[in-house]
Write a protein that binds this DNA or RNA. Structure first.
Length: 257
DNA sequence: ATGGTAGAGTGTCTA
């Protein structure tokens, strides 16, 4: 079984690329983030023609998550218990959706950005990650926590760490929140299969960051111990980030035996 | 320090 995660930055503007990606790599399950679409706006027809079913949640133009599967979608759950909501008054957000696909419990996660360390959004991000950890501790079986984590776990995951001295994504509390999931037994399964320096999954649209390979590694697949033991390979589809009309994130693909 | 690009949808907000 081949699973993937991709922050598509609008599924409507990118649907042709999504369909081509699914076919090019023979993907069974794709978790997407930043669909930027309500459920009634999803471009489903082409996906259905290709044999995929879709479970999605989206309430506004900024986030939205979905799972696209051709091996079934069962027990769909939007959000996890105690998942925080940002804003005063709170704004309905769709940042997590879980479903069982082909026997694997997959969570498509769009971790809050945090904006700046001084912004209330940063504390919301840490709270969100803490509640995710609690929820994840209760998950059992073959579980994959996949998505855009908006955390660069090491300095090597940032093109220029000095430039991020006052930024989110690299602060110790964010990194500790990511590490806490690993301490609970989850395994980040993509890094062992994608070695080398300057391996990224996201390149800002500004200033030709992709062309100069000035990116971040912030998209990951965390597997429960039993799922991690099934991983046979992984890769980042870096080519998908090239050219006109690309998302600012590349897809991450994982193979399971 | 600032600004650069992209996508939502018309006002800016988000990233």
């Amino acid at each position: 079984m081949r699973i993937a995660t991709w922050n598509v930055n609008s599924i409507r503007s990118r649907i042709d690329r999504v369909e081509a990606f699914l076919q090019r790599h023979d993907i069974d399950v794709l978790a997407v983030q930043e669909t930027k679409a309500r459920e009634d706006q999803l471009p489903l027809m082409g996906l259905q023609v290709l044999g995929y079913d879709v479970a999605a949640a989206g309430y506004n133009q900024w986030n939205g998550v979905a799972i696209i599967s051709r091996v079934g979608i069962e027990d769909v759950q939007v959000g996890f218990p105690e998942m925080p909501v940002f804003g005063d008054p709170p704004v309905a957000e769709a940042r997590a959706i879980g479903a069982t696909c082909g026997g694997v419990r997959i969570w498509s996660l769009y971790v809050p950005n945090g904006r700046t360390p001084e912004d209330p959004h940063y504390l919301y991000k840490l709270d969100w990650l803490a509640k995710l950890r609690t929820a994840a501790q209760s998950f059992s079986g073959d579980v994959a926590l996949v998505g855009d984590w908006n955390i660069a776990p090491t300095d090597a995951d940032v093109f220029d760490i000095a430039q991020f001295a006052k930024s989110t994504h690299v602060t110790p509390p964010e990194r500790a929140a990511f590490q806490a999931l690993l301490e609970d037994g989850y395994v980040e399964v993509t890094r062992p299969h994608t070695p080398g320096p300057e391996v990224y999954t996201y390149w800002d649209y500004y200033r030709q960051r992709f062309e100069r390979n000035r990116g971040l590694r912030i998209d990951f697949v965390l597997g429960s111990p039993s799922l991690a033991s099934r991983v046979t390979g992984a890769f980042i589809d870096r080519d998908e980030r090239a050219g006109q009309g690309a998302s600012d994130h590349a897809p991450v693909v994982v193979d399971l035996r």
